[in-house]
């Protein structure tokens, strides 16, 4: 395995469709919950410790070889909002295309066959990491980090936020990302023996509600 593969997979320019999604930030900006760097930081912190922790654990479990179909079902069960499930599958399908071209692997082909319209993105991400020769920790890092970097990039566009401030937010969150990843990998290892019920199931109701409202807007900049 190569360390540098992690950089390829974690690169914000990896062409997997993420640029069109705000991770709930657009809805939060509209609702007045994010008005600047401080609000962005609180938003990202909340996301990191709830849906971010779940996604990271799913990705780590997929990277460990836990059955991706069971993981996809677990992701569904942990995502009450139908709009968010649609977005997660869309992003999973787009990541699948990029991953299969970048790191061809029979397990990716098998999952693509099983879910032609897309499996949940964190599951595909974990399997992509596996195909790239990376481990569960790497997969969890990619997932946890993109869960906060996506909203940060979106808020730079939505509020014309100073990009240095947005990057500062991400740097300040880094130690918490480390903690979330550690817990995610622990949970994923338990899931190898105990099944997907061992994975965390935290959720952020406002993200779910915001996503449902956002999906019904006639005019929006981001797909989710």
């Amino acid at each position: 395995m190569t360390r540098a593969a992690l950089l390829v997979l974690a690169d914000g320019r990896f062409p997997a469709g993420g640029h069109a999604h705000s991770g709930g930030a657009e809805a939060a900006v509209k609702a007045g919950r994010i008005t600047g760097a401080a609000g962005l930081e609180e938003f990202c912190r909340g996301r990191l410790h709830t849906s971010g922790a779940v996604s990271a654990a799913l990705a780590a479990a997929a990277a460990l070889g836990v059955d991706p179909v069971a993981l996809d079902g677990a992701a569904d069960a942990r995502t009450p909002s139908a709009a968010l499930r649609v977005a997660a599958r869309k992003l999973g399908r787009q990541l699948m295309r990029a991953a299969r071209t970048t790191w061809p692997h029979p397990e990716l082909d098998a999952l693509a066959r099983q879910f032609p319209k897309g499996a949940h993105q964190p599951v595909v991400l974990g399997l992509a990491a596996r195909a790239a020769g990376l481990g569960p920790e790497d997969a969890a890092y990619c997932s946890a980090y993109e869960g906060v970097s996506g909203p940060a990039t979106a808020v730079v566009r939505l509020l014309s936020l100073d990009p240095f401030d947005a990057t500062g937010v991400l740097a300040r969150l880094a130690p918490e990302v480390d903690l979330v990843v550690r817990d995610a990998v622990d949970a994923a290892r338990r899931a190898v023996d105990l099944g997907v019920d061992a994975l965390p199931a935290g959720s952020a109701p406002l993200l779910e509600i915001g996503a449902e409202a956002h999906a019904a807007w006639p005019v929006r900049l981001f797909a989710s």
Binding site: P15, H19, A20, R157, F222
Partner: peptide
């Protein structure tokens, strides 16, 4: 939907 960046969606990340 292009996330405020139509040129990204047609050039840099064409997945959607």
């Amino acid at each position: 939907e292009t996330g405020a960046c139509p040129h990204t969606a047609i050039r840099d990340d064409i997945s959607a």
